[in-house]
Amino acid sequence: MLNIQNLHAEIEGKKILKGLNLEIKPGEVHAIMGPNGAGKSTLASVLAGREHFDVTGGTVDFLGKDLLDLAPEERAGEGLFLAFQYPVEIPGLTTTNFIKTAVNQIRKYRGEEPLDAVAFLKMMKEKMAITNIDQSLLSRSLNEGFSGGEKKRNEVFQMAMLEPKLAILDETDSGLDIDAIRIVANGVNKLRSKDNAVLVVTHYQRLLDYIIPDFVHVLYDGRIVKSGPKELALELEEKGYDFIRNEVKVGQEA
């Protein structure tokens, strides 16, 4: 589904990603962990197409298309979703209006008819139930005055509405207490299927207690330096990122 080869990216001349490789297949959940500054959020941003980042090398294939060649809204149309670490506020625009516009623009991109009001409301009700989100929240201005937990739940609700093939969760657990993490994770888990995939980007292991990954990758200094099964996350938690640092150093010296 997603195949990243030797990806290099920089921001304002500073190299962040330095030859990253990653392959994700349908039905899989991958977790990317790493210390601050390793390039985790950069990877999420580059995949979603944020402008500030310059891709200086490598390829990203997404469902047979050159992802890097597509505009951000086209990537969304192809089925890529990013749950933001810091969801933005848009005063005066309700989540309902926002997501309706999004759903129909994506349908348009795919050559489908826009959903009529009845079909849209039906879909919304369904997804609200799955993601345990309240109607009153959706009638408020997008993310304005939302608590951290409400913002993240709103991200998962949007993900449910857009039914992406690949969802990237960028530090979705940051700033959340354990109850909020559980609610958000439950939402994500209910959306998992054999046809879609999830990429969880996180600093801490705790989110992975609830969203169980098939693979864990350690991102360090712009590259994936270690990959393994879900137990790797626990090992990291126990030993801290220093152990990776040491391993990398040893590797370089050898």
Partner: peptide
């Protein structure tokens, strides 16, 4: 940021 957020949801 607001525009990118919309773009990421498929909105031009």
């Amino acid at each position: 940021d607001q525009i990118f957020y919309c773009n990421q949801r498929g909105i031009d």
